[in-house]
């Protein structure tokens, strides 16, 4: 085996390459297998059908919206979890991570009992003139619910790694807490923030279970691309495969674009 000259590192045990390769295949092969099933002659018309375009547009819009909500809520959450010490914070941290391990359907049921018409907040919202049920808002809520932990977890880790020493110095130079946050804390965890944002967006884009349970499924309103794919499987497997590949391409593009120009080194 030849290797390029340069950093040789300490060397990995040879056996590690076998499970690593199997793992890599395990991820890549199903994507390849799916690509081989695509009806390429009709691909363009399949992915540009009215329902497909509506689903893709809805998916991109709702994922962008839920990622924005994740940032607005998640950055302060990560800051509190990383920087504050008060009784019960460990419990709080565990609770925030629950959607990571919860089956999304369960998340959908939980959201239903919270924001649904008969839910905890549903009646209050209805009185206020806000009807969440079966609306695009419900999709964004479902996506935010499942995607938020990805942002919080990634950012909290980055904040802990960065530590608060720079913040202390900045404050001693006369910077108000908001200035410290804007000019020092967040730039220092920039790579972590980008990773967390990408993960949240990707998770929102792929969200299915909570959406179908909580938001329903109606073209142009709540039927995102994953829901459309699942529905198309019933009658038109070719369309389902074509749309699946489209979703993969979109996900890969999002990850590739945000990774570009980002240094390979770990956050500070």
């Amino acid at each position: 085996m030849t290797a390029p000259a340069g950093d040789a590192g300490a060397g990995l045990p040879r056996w590690a390459f076998v499970p690593a390769a199997v793992g890599g295949l395990f991820v890549v092969l199903p994507l390849v297998a799916m690509a081989t099933r695509v009806d390429w002659s009709g691909y363009w018309s399949l992915v540009t059908s009215a329902s497909a375009r509506a689903a893709l547009a809805l998916s991109l819009q709702t994922s962008a919206a839920s990622t924005a909500v994740c940032l607005v809520l998640g950055i302060p959450m990560a800051l509190v979890l990383a920087r504050c010490r008060f009784p019960g914070i460990d419990l709080l941290r565990s609770l925030v991570m629950v959607p990571l391990v919860l089956p999304p359907v369960v998340g959908g049921v939980a959201l239903l009992y919270t924001f649904g018409r008969r839910g905890l907040l549903g009646e209050t919202l209805e009185v206020a003139g806000l009807q969440v049920a079966f609306s695009t808002t419900a999709v964004v809520l479902a996506q935010t619910f499942v995607a938020l932990p990805f942002l919080v977890m990634t950012l909290e880790g980055a904040l802990r790694t960065a530590g608060s020493r720079y913040d202390v110095v900045a404050a001693s130079l006369g910077a108000r807490p908001t200035t410290v946050l804007r000019r020092v804390t967040l730039p220092l965890v920039g790579p972590g923030l980008v990773s967390g944002t990408v993960l949240s967006f990707a998770r929102a884009l792929g969200e299915f279970g909570a959406t179908i349970t909580f938001a329903g499924s109606l073209e142009g309103v709540t039927r995102t691309l994953p829901l459309e794919i699942y529905l198309q499987r019933e009658t038109d497997p070719d369309a389902a495969v074509a749309l699946s590949l489209l979703l993969v391409v979109v996900a890969v593009l999002v990850i590739a674009v945000t990774r570009q120009g980002r240094p390979a080194r770990s956050p500070l």
């Binding site: 079966f134 329903g216 499924s217 709540t222 039927r223």
Partner: peptide, 9 residues
């Protein structure tokens, strides 16, 4: 308001 995937939904 919604066209569900299955009768269970």
């Amino acid at each position: 308001v919604s066209e569900e995937q299955s009768v269970t939904d």
